[in-house]
């Protein structure tokens, strides 16, 4: 009986959690207008989650592209179609790897930092102090961090894909020596702007919203203790990574079916 009770309690807790998260999301959106009036707060968060993630995103993108170039060449050479290397690298990056890997990196680099920051503010009662001074902590602290993440994520994903294509070019054309013309030419012939690139951007925006939402919510919802903050940070990385992968499957099946 206790097993059943446990399942029931967990299900109720999960639904309660989800409802609270949604209510919190709406509250953040409602407070956004107030926080945009002081735009430098949001710009500061774009700096912390976007600019400071530049290096890891660019280096990872370059290496992922280089690995794709190597592995892709290896497989394609068996079928004598090395000239399709550009297509392989570009399509896999723009459609899937760019948004997904950039999202995962963003969740662990910026999302965890946001959660820890908000959680620690809560643990040290800074949020309560703001409330006491009639400053809405959601408008002052949460909304700028949310929007900073939403703005940064698509730009980082585009950068990741661009660096990946360059990495594939370096390995495929410069090091291995496939033809430059067919590398770019076939790529341009098969990558469609609307179908592939814009859909990739849409994906990265969705992931940006998901990661930022999870990050600010877990921070705000964390237990006001050192242990609570550390747990919330872990939960942010786990939940947002799972959310990214799950959403990616849904979006891919909606976008690229048939």
């Amino acid at each position: 009986m206790s097993v059943l009770q446990g399942i029931g309690a967990r299900t109720t807790a999960a639904v309660w959690h989800l409802g609270f998260a949604t209510r919190f999301f709406v509250a953040v959106l409602l407070a956004s207008g107030t926080s945009f009036r002081r735009i430098h707060l949001t710009l500061r968060e774009v700096y912390f989650s976007g600019v400071l993630s530049l290096v890891i995103i660019m280096v990872s993108g370059l290496f992922v592209g280089m690995v794709l170039g190597l592995q892709g060449y290896d497989t394609l050479a068996r079928y004598g179609s090395e000239e399709a290397l550009g297509v392989l690298v570009a399509l896999s990056l723009v459609r899937e790897l760019g948004p997904v890997v950039a999202g995962l990196l963003f969740a662990s680099r910026a999302g965890s930092a946001i959660t820890a920051e908000i959680g620690l503010m809560k643990a040290t009662e800074q949020l309560d102090a703001m409330d006491m001074m009639a400053v809405n902590p959601i408008a002052r602290v949460v909304a700028p961090r949310f929007w900073g993440g939403v703005i940064s994520m698509p730009l980082l994903a585009a950068l990741f894909s661009a660096m990946g294509v360059l990495g594939g070019y370096i390995v495929g054309v410069v090091l291995i020596g496939t033809d430059t013309g067919s590398f770019w030419g076939q790529m341009q012939a098969s990558v469609d702007f609307k179908r592939d690139i814009l859909n990739g951007v849409v994906k990265s925006v969705v992931f940006g919203v998901a990661v930022s939402w999870v990050a600010v919510f877990e921070g705000y919802d964390s237990d006001a203790t050192a242990e609570g903050v550390s747990r919330a940070t872990t939960r942010t990385v786990v939940t947002s990574s799972l959310a990214i992968l799950g959403l990616d499957f849904i979006l891919t099946s909606l976008m690229f079916r048939g």
């Binding site: 730009l155 585009a158 661009a162």
Partner: peptide, 10 residues
Amino acid sequence: ALLFLAMRVG
């Protein structure tokens, strides 16, 4: 980067 993707890749 987005422009690069649109023009050079796409």
